[in-house]
Simulated assay, not measured.
Amino acid sequence: MKVILTYGTFDLFHVGHIRLLKRLSLLGDRLVVGISSDSFNEMKGKKSFFSYAERAEIVSSCKYVDEVFPENNWDQKIDDIKKYGVTCFSMGDDWIGKFDYLEEYCEVLYLERTEDISTTDIKKKLSLISQSELEKIESSLHDVIGIVKSLNIK
Results as ranks from 00 to 15, higher is better:
V65S: 05
F69N: 04
K63S: 12
G34P: 05
I117F: 06
K77V: 13
I122Q: 03
T120D: 07
L27T: 05
K63Q: 12
F99H: 13
D29T: 13
I145Y: 12
F49H: 01
K149H: 14
L128Y: 06
E104N: 14
S39N: 07
S25K: 14
K125T: 07
K82C: 04
S139N: 15
I147Y: 15
I78L: 02
N152I: 12
L109Y: 10
L12G: 00
F89Y: 14
L27K: 12
I145V: 14
K2Q: 11
E115N: 09
Q131R: 13
K44T: 03
V144D: 05
D121C: 01
K46S: 01
K98H: 12
R55V: 01
P70Y: 02
R23V: 01
N152A: 13
E57A: 15
S118F: 08
L128W: 05
L21G: 10
L31W: 06
V33R: 05
I96N: 08
D93W: 12
S48K: 00
G8D: 03
D79L: 11
K22G: 01
F89K: 04
S140K: 15
H14E: 09
R23S: 14
D121A: 15
E107V: 11
F99N: 14
D29W: 05
L21R: 08
L126Q: 01
N152K: 15
T119H: 07
I145G: 01
E107I: 10
S61M: 08
N152F: 11
R113A: 08
I122E: 03
G92D: 05
I153H: 09
T6K: 02
D121S: 13
D100C: 08
E133A: 13
K82F: 07
I145H: 12
F49R: 00
K149P: 05
A56Q: 02
G146E: 13
L134W: 11
D75N: 13
Y7S: 02
L128Q: 12
D100V: 10
F69C: 03
L102N: 06
K83G: 09
E67G: 01
E54D: 08
V3D: 00
I117Y: 06
E104M: 07
I96T: 11
Y105Q: 03
D11L: 02
K22H: 14
E115Y: 03
Y101I: 12
S127A: 14
D94A: 06
S150C: 09
